[in-house]
Write a protein that binds this DNA or RNA. Structure first.
Lengths: 214, 214
DNA sequence: AAAATTATTCGTACATGTACATTTTCTGAC
DNA sequence: GTCAGAAAATGTACATGTACGAATAATTTT
């Protein structure tokens, strides 16, 4: 029946897209980040350059897909670092997040430091909130801390604030490698400790509901 | 004598460079940020496209120069917002910095969210530290707070931490405009208050001296 | 002044992302 | 099987940043 064929085509297309991603990954391994070129990529899989655009909207789309794969590795790595103490588990998110960002600056940049022209098609933010695996784990662990009475207030607000601090720290370290932050690890730890200590005291209000915007 | 001619040439060259920058600025005004093109720019000043490269290393260099001009406006704006209370003055830096970043996302991006391949030729960081006018004011005001006994510890370390928080906040707001941070102003204020409150307690150690770095 | 050296400008050429239109392949109805 | 319509793949073309080297102008040396 028609639906089966439809499905098969979709799967086939997904498989080809996956092949392209694999080829892109290998290309980056072999020739570095700036060696990833639409033409080279097409050549690797025996396509004409323009055929790539049947599977990806544009080059950014490819980079995003690659970065998303990398971020799933991060999510797994974070889940490996879990403690009995929920606060320690929370700290581990920050630590692993930082290590990942510093170790994969290109992926970090494409996901977190690149203009987002389109809100990911679904609802404006739900998609994003649930989009990055690492963000999910962060919220989960904040919730655990709140449940354990170690933190007080709205978990999403707390997670967002932690995100802002962590992102600021990491992106500065990535962007200004020559600035004397001292030992990156130490700077990350300092920012992390400082922030968590600051949050431990107060009751954190939920984020406002976007009132005065334009 | 020879030196005079040398000087004159340098001034002439600087003037031409300035003309190019002015033309670039106008181009951006008229056609938007992505409308700034080497070819268009050259045409505006009656040059061949490649001649632009006598005055700028590459396109990034032009964008940087434009952004630096913008940041001087920020520095001036910050200095207008000064209070008797040094802590309030410090808060004003963050507020104005944020307002500037949100109002000039392109400039903010080119200065703070773009890979720095070359450490600015002088000494590795001195140049950078004194490079951005806003950073100078920040350090100055932190020093004032320390002097007034409102903050304790190393001023540069405190300023760097504030920078990290401020930058994280602003760059997230710029990069994920659709994420429900709530009112941007409110989010900035929250991050700012939270951070300054957290710093007020503790004695802040200087940043370590770059020990374990590959 | 003439020649040599240096600084400045420019012409040509290439790799890149991708818009647009065309061709080829596939699908489902008759 | 035939054929119309859709989907996938491709060919061509353009704007862009910029490398490279030639041409031109300015400066210094002789």
């Amino acid at each position: 029946m028609a639906l089966t064929v439809q499905k098969r085509r979709e799967q086939h297309k997904a498989a080809l897209r996956s092949d392209l991603l694999a080829a892109a990954h290998k290309l980056v391994q072999e020739e570095g980040y700036e060696g990833l070129t639409i033409r080279k990529l097409a050549q690797r899989v025996g396509y004409a350059p323009m055929s790539v655009y049947s599977y990806f909207a544009d080059k950014q789309d490819i980079l995003f897909a690659l970065a998303e794969d990398a971020f799933e590795i991060l999510a797994r790595r974070i889940e490996e670092h879990q403690s009995d103490d929920p606060m320690e588990s929370l700290r581990a998110v920050m630590t692993e997040y930082a290590a990942f960002g510093l170790g994969n600056p290109n992926e970090y940049r494409t996901v977190f430091m690149t203009e987002k022209l389109k809100a990911p098609e679904g609802r404006s933010f739900q998609e994003m909130e649930n989009g990055n695996p690492a963000m999910n784990v962060l919220i989960d662990r904040v919730e655990a801390c709140v449940a354990a009475g170690k933190l007080k207030g709205d978990p999403r607000a707390i997670a967002t604030m932690l995100w802002a601090v962590g992102h600021g720290t990491i992106s500065l370290l990535i962007t200004f490698p020559f600035y004397p932050f001292g030992d990156p690890q130490a700077f990350v730890r300092r920012m992390c400790d400082f922030t968590i200590a600051g949050l431990a005291d107060k009751e954190v209000e939920p984020l406002s509901d976007q009132p005065a915007n334009c």
